[in-house]
Simulated scan of single mutants.
Amino acid sequence: MDTQTLPLTASAQVWTGGSDFRNLSVDLPELAHGEAMATIDLATICGSDIHTISGRRSGPHPGILGHEAVGRITSIGPGGIQDFKGRQLQPGDRVIWSVTVACGQCARCRAGVTAKCVELLKTGHEPLDGVWGLSGGYSSHIHLRRGITMVSVPETVSDAAAAPVACATATVMAVVEAAGMLAGKRVLVSGAGMLGIVACAVAQHRGASAVHVRDINPERLALAQEFGATDAAAPNADRTRLAVDIAIDVSGAAQAVESALGALDISGRLVLAGSVSPGPAVSFDPERMVRSLLTITGVHNYEPRHLQEAMDFVNETRDTYQWDALVEEPRALAELPFVMQPPTGRSLRKSVTPNVGTIRRTS
């Protein structure tokens, strides 16, 4: 166990319901076998947290939100800890961590579906008085429980590029795995938020013959073209029927889902990842599904391998795509209540940091 001196408490912005937050001191827990403590260098604000405080999705409170973050290990419990590649981690090592914490023993975990573990805990989704109170990124420290996946962050990757990997980029890796081989395929991406922009970049990088993106925001459509889209337009911009092999919906909009399904060519596959809050039902024609050999599948969260794949992808493409440009300049953690708003323009993520002077800006 590391014996360096640690503070006794973390400083956290605790969500208390609605749009209300309180700046509280939270006791640091004693570390058990296979656990660690880390400081938060930067946390980005995922749209799902904005949905939570606006009431579009439920969440326990009081609690510490935030599941896209990057930080450094400060203390390690008995037995040590390893990153996904099996490297023994040490205090000072820079890491990101998974959205999910799985038991590793239940039938779902044994079947490789750890994202749906029967005892699942989720980063930034746990009550403050529960078994994992210090679970969110909107805090000076986070308790990394046994069962969480940790991935080392190369020094060539900036904080702004690394933090969204923990949710958006890793989720896209799960999505494209579900989509199958992309090389030579015509791909449609519905929604040009963070997930959609990443999906465009991955599709282009993996050799898609065309990457169509649909969104109602002109600035995000322009951004998509900088990240691999070959065709970016508003929905129903023309009456020409689009035909694609793979459609990916990350918008969650029922009309977009129906349009994506309608665009599938023979043997086409639709992957749904944006429908994570209640919405209207979507109809489909079973005969067309059968005769056209179509497939619809859903993706929610991701597996440990996807987190590593996402970090590798961002590092590999750091000179191709301006990942830093997608994240606004960070604000102090105390300002979190004022920045929990959807980003505007070309920005896809707002961000906060407990210690502004520690941000790594590798380009």
Rank of each mutant, 00 (worst) to 15 (best):
D2E: 07
D2M: 07
T3D: 13
L6H: 06
L8D: 15
A12N: 13
W15A: 09
D20L: 07
L24S: 12
S25C: 08
D27S: 14
E30F: 06
L31E: 05
M37S: 07
I40Y: 00
I45W: 06
I45E: 10
S48G: 05
D49I: 07
H51E: 14
G55F: 00
G63I: 08
G66K: 02
H67A: 08
H67P: 03
A69D: 02
P78V: 04
Q90R: 14
G92V: 13
V95K: 10
T100Q: 03
Q105H: 13
C106D: 15
C106A: 14
A107S: 12
V113W: 11
K116A: 12
V118K: 14
K122P: 01
T123M: 13
T123E: 12
G130K: 01
S135Q: 00
H143D: 02
R146T: 03
G147F: 12
V153S: 13
A162M: 09
V165A: 13
A168P: 04
A170K: 05
M173A: 08
M173I: 08
V175W: 00
E177V: 10
L182I: 10
G184M: 11
G191K: 00
A192E: 08
L195F: 05
Q204H: 13
Q204T: 03
H205T: 15
G207H: 08
A208Q: 14
V213S: 08
E219N: 12
A222T: 14
A232F: 05
N236E: 11
V244L: 11
I248V: 11
E258V: 04
S259N: 09
L270T: 04
P286R: 07
Y302A: 09
E303F: 07
D312M: 03
F313A: 07
N315R: 02
E316V: 00
T320S: 12
Q322S: 15
A325G: 12
V327K: 04
P330T: 14
A332W: 05
L336Q: 05
P337F: 10
P337I: 05
Q341F: 10
T344L: 14
G345S: 12
L348T: 02
S351M: 01
V352I: 13
V352H: 06
N355W: 00
V356W: 15
G357N: 14
T358S: 15
S363C: 14
